[in-house]
């Protein structure tokens, strides 16, 4: 049904599926622009993360991309069409909104049946899609229960399943894992990975940096309605030019040990706590070997888990400072 996922190095040459240029919007009565001259592109098959603090303009951007809000200025093209006038486009896209956008009084199955009808699915195709999306979102056992009794995690999964029923070529996800338990979060991330492998283009907003880092190919960071950084995940992570390694040592490092680690731009937070710049895993091995030569080992090591968070925070700080 979907074309195979393009390899990452092909993406640059793939014509953009989503193209946003000079997008500006101000809500009636507001003193400032919700979006100001926003540009970005998303290639077919790409998972694009949209990052920014609360109120940055992410939801406004998604509303414009899905055609529910008309921008004041700028151009938006999704698969070459203006989202506001693209009924065909609505047939190949879907949104997982931040809200639980389904009927609490209806069961999971009744909600899905309603959206099957709304998407115009013939009966047989609907049954196939129902089986697929309930399987991928692990909803099978709770389908007959009223949605109002679902846990937060199940509600998020039903929210996703409803969007998947349309088997969209482009899927907009607005914080799809916010406020849920680890199991439901993993289920949703697993579903997103499956869609990624099947070549679904996704635009994904989240405040969980490790999620974004794990599933996104490219990122746009917006703050106060403006794009402050955009690029591939590698480009974004390379913005700080380093990869940080946080170490808690087995004991206090002496002068020689501190000199031995100076090669990796060591910043000592305490005699037994240091932040180093390790470009890759071979650097980490060399650091651990140097520690061992001075009778030390790593009691706790943290590397890469919050790399994106560090970049993100740095970007926001830079913007605030400027």
């Amino acid at each position: 049904m979907n074309s195979p996922r393009p390899r990452k190095h092909d993406m640059a040459s793939t014509p953009p599926l989503v193209q946003v240029e000079g997008l500006t919007h101000r809500y009636p009565g507001a003193g400032v622009d919700a979006l100001r001259a926003v540009d970005f592109r998303v290639a077919e098959g790409e998972v694009h993360g949209l990052l920014g603090p609360n109120g940055a303009g992410k939801s406004t951007l998604l509303a414009i991309l899905t055609g529910t809000l008309r921008p004041d200025r700028g151009q938006v093209r999704v698969d070459g069409l203006d989202p506001r006038h693209g009924r065909r486009l609505r047939g190949i896209s879907a949104i997982v909104p931040q809200e639980y956008a389904f009927y609490p009084a209806l069961s999971g199955r009744e909600n899905l049946a309603f959206f099957g009808g709304v998407y115009g699915l013939p009966r047989r195709l609907y049954r196939e899609r129902l089986a697929w999306c309930t399987d991928i979102c692990q909803l099978g056992e709770v389908l007959e229960r009223p949605a109002r009794v679902y846990s937060g995690g199940l509600k998020r999964r039903l929210n996703l399943a409803i969007a998947l029923l349309n088997r969209p070529r482009i899927l907009y996800l607005d914080e799809p894992t916010v406020g849920i338990d680890a199991h439901s979060r993993q289920t949703i991330l697993g579903a997103i990975r499956t869609l990624r492998e099947q070549g679904t283009t996704m635009i994904y907003t989240s405040h969980y940096m490790e999620e974004v880092e794990a599933i996104c190919d490219s990122l746009t960071v917006i703050n106060a309605g403006q794009v402050i950084a955009s690029g591939t995940l590698e480009q974004m992570l390379g913005r700080l030019g380093i990869t940080r390694l946080y170490l808690e040592l087995s004991g206090a490092a002496d002068k020689q040990a501190q000199q031995a680690l100076a090669t990796w731009q060591a910043q000592w937070q305490a005699p037994d706590k240091v932040v180093l710049e390790a470009a890759d895993s071979s650097d980490i091995v060399r650091i651990l070997q140097a520690l061992a030569q001075h009778g030390l080992s790593a009691r706790r090591l943290r590397y890469g888990i919050s790399r994106l968070e560090a970049v993100y925070m740095q970007l926001l700080e830079d913007t605030e400072a400027s």
Binding site: R88, S93, F102, V118
Partner: peptide
């Protein structure tokens, strides 16, 4: 309030 109207406007109905 549920966001249903916005969601429905993103569907082909």
């Amino acid at each position: 309030e549920l966001g249903m109207d916005r969601r429905l406007r993103t569907t082909p109905v």
